[in-house]
Amino acid sequence: MKIVTCIKQTFDTEAKIVVGGDGQISDEGVNMILNPYDEYAVEEAIKTKEKDGGEVVVVTVGGDKAQEALRYSLAMGADRAVLINDPALEKADSHAVSVALAKLLSDKEAGYDVIFAGKEAVDDGAAQVPSRLAAKLDLALANVVVAVELADGKATVTREIDGGTEELEMALPALISAQKGLNEVRYPSLPGIMKAKRKPLDVVSLADLGLSAEDVASKVEMVSAELPPARKAGQKLTGEVDEVVAKLVELLKNEAKVI
């Protein structure tokens, strides 16, 4: 089995967001992590390999720093990594990322049986790359997946939909995007971290992939960012239980008009 996992390096979920003088979000001094949903994808890839054998390749689009997220995945147990790093991808949107990944996966890294990814990245919250990539590679797709079974060249998955779940079946190769709850993510062990340092990590440019800057021109641009208006503390209702409850119902009815 050749198992590919697409990952992204993101801000730590605890990071405080600062908008710089240029109106863009500043990454200065921000701790970077492997996108939480991608952790489930990496874990599922490693579990699959442990069961069925094969190799796990983690791939990403990013700058030099993104190597840390790849090394983290290698420390968890992936076998090798590929970083697509090019100045033309510095402001890559979901379109640009999916074009670059699709080229890598249909060329240098072709022959995969399954591709795992996180259902979305917690930074831009776009949730686009898995579906766009499936379109580019013409693959069967299951998003927001909470259970996977791979057997006899088929994937059987359970995924969340609004108000319930769906069970889907598809022939491999397929693209599966992970939701929280898919598995229990392991922490890298100390030997794992030591081994990861020696595992192969290839860095490829757009030219290496046979793509031009024009091929990956972003279609979406963030013009500016602002912090949301802060919510203010309202009123605290005090008194006996019956009193406060009556007050609350009155306020919800006549002031807020929401019930």
Partner: peptide, 23 residues
């Protein structure tokens, strides 16, 4: 931007090569 809408929009945008702003 429902579970279905977000993936449908993204896959269609991938086929049509269009920009998409989610959510």
């Amino acid at each position: 931007h429902s579970t279905v809408g977000r993936e449908l929009a993204a896959r269609a945008a991938g086929i049509a090569d269009c920009g998409l702003v989610s959510d």
